[in-house]
C-alpha cells in the first residue's frame, strides 16, 4: 500500500500524561511519527494542540484517527490535506563563513540571523516544511555545525 505523508492535528485536554498516551498509541500500534509538536491552545482553558506528521496508507491513517479519538482526553482529531503548514529551523554556522551570504540565504526562506557569538552565528528560517528542507540543503556549503528543525505546525484553511 502507498505510504503518503499526512498531517494530523489533535486537540486534547491538557493533563499530565496525555502526550504519553498519544506517543504510546503510535508506538504500540506500529504507526510512525515523523515529527510532533505540542503546545497549549492560547486563550483557551486547559486544551493543547498536537500536530503530528506521519507516513502511512489512507487505511492506516484512518485507523490512527479512530484510535486517537478513542483516547478519553482527546477532544478533536483533524486529518486533512488542506492545512497551512509551517516549520522553523535554527542553524549554527562558523563565524568564519560570510555573514552576508548566510543572511541573504536565510532571508530567501523567510528568516534572518538571530545571534552572533564569538565562534558562531545562528540563523533561523520559518517556511513550509519542503522549503525548510531546501534551505537546509542550501546551507550545507556554509559548513553548519548544528541544525534543528521544530517539526510542523499546521492550521486548517
Amino acid at each position: 500500500m502507498r505510504e503518503d505523508r499526512h498531517i494530523i492535528s489533535v486537540i486534547v485536554q491538557n493533563e499530565s500524561s496525555v502526550l504519553a498516551r498519544i506517543s504510546g498509541l503510535f508506538a504500540g500500534r506500529g504507526y510512525n511519527i515523523e515529527s510532533l509538536t505540542v503546545a497549549p491552545v492560547p486563550n483557551d482553558s486547559g486544551l493543547s494542540r498536537l500536530t503530528i506528521e506521519t507516513y502511512g496508507s489512507c487505511k492506516t491513517v484512518t485507523q490512527i484517527e479512530k484510535q486517537l479519538n478513542k483516547l478519553i482526553p482527546v477532544l478533536k482529531v483533524v486529518e486533512k490535506d488542506d492545512f497551512v503548514e509551517k516549520e522553523m529551523a535554527l542553524v549554527k554556522v562558523p563565524i568564519e563563513e560570510s555573514l552576508s551570504d548566510v543572511d541573504a540565504l536565510a532571508r530567501a526562506y523567510n528568516g534572518k540571523i538571530v545571534n552572533v557569538g564569538d565562534g558562531s552565528i545562528i540563523c533561523m528560517v520559518a517556511d513550509e516544511p519542503t522549503r525548510v528542507a531546501y534551505f537546509i540543503k542550501a546551507i550545507q556549503k556554509y559548513n553548519p555545525i548544528e541544525i534543528i528543525r521544530s517539526g510542523v505546525v499546521a492550521l486548517e484553511r
Binding site: K59, Q63, K66, N69, K70
Partner: peptide, 8 residues
C-alpha cells in the same frame, strides 16, 4: 459501538 473496529 467502536468506530475503530469498523473497517479495521
Amino acid at each position: 459501538i467502536d468506530p475503530s473496529s469498523v473497517d479495521k
